[in-house]
Write a protein that binds this DNA or RNA. Structure first.
Length: 139
DNA sequence: AGCCTGACTTTGT
DNA sequence: GACAAAGCCAGGC
């Protein structure tokens, strides 16, 4: 039971990038999908690339999510990439931020405690785009 | 046009 | 429990 995208909330399609043709020649922008989901992440909550990837269509493409985030810096509206961490709750992408501390700083501002580059209580703060109500992990 | 890398994840040994 | 390999898609060279 993981075939349908299950978009409980029919959110408007992202305006996507204008000045650039943003990848994907297939019609559906993987990036756009990722941005859409990433923007849905509630404040003070975090999610994993795999969760986004799964909601995007395939969790196998978790890497692409990270790649998309890389482009997210130029995406509008800005994507809260700081709320996206790896499955370990580790801020793997912090090095890609303008500053190596920007990510954890942002998380702390939202009430997320970060210890040793990893989210404290990640399991509790984890927000699954497919199960926003329960907020629990599928696993 | 082809090869390599990349902010991940899962499974197997 | 740790290490290695495979799979996904896209971008850069």
């Amino acid at each position: 039971m993981k075939k349908s995208k299950t978009n409980p909330t029919d959110l408007p399609v992202a305006p996507l990038v204008t000045h650039k043709k943003v990848a994907t020649a297939k019609g559906v922008n993987f990036f756009d999908t990722v941005y859409k989901i990433a923007r849905k992440i509630p404040k003070g909550r975090v999610t994993s690339y795999g969760a986004i990837a799964e909601s995007s269509g395939s969790r196998l493409s978790a890497r692409m999510v990270g790649w998309a985030m890389n482009a997210a810096g130029s995406a509008k509206p800005p994507v809260p990439a700081h709320r996206v961490v790896n499955r370990n709750g580790l801020l793997t992408g912090k090095h890609h931020f303008p500053t190596p501390t920007a990510m954890e700083e942002l998380l702390r501002q939202e009430g997320v405690e970060v210890k040793d580059d990893k989210v404290v209580g990640f399991r509790e703060l984890f927000w699954d785009p497919s199960y926003p109500g329960t907020g629990s992990r599928k696993k």
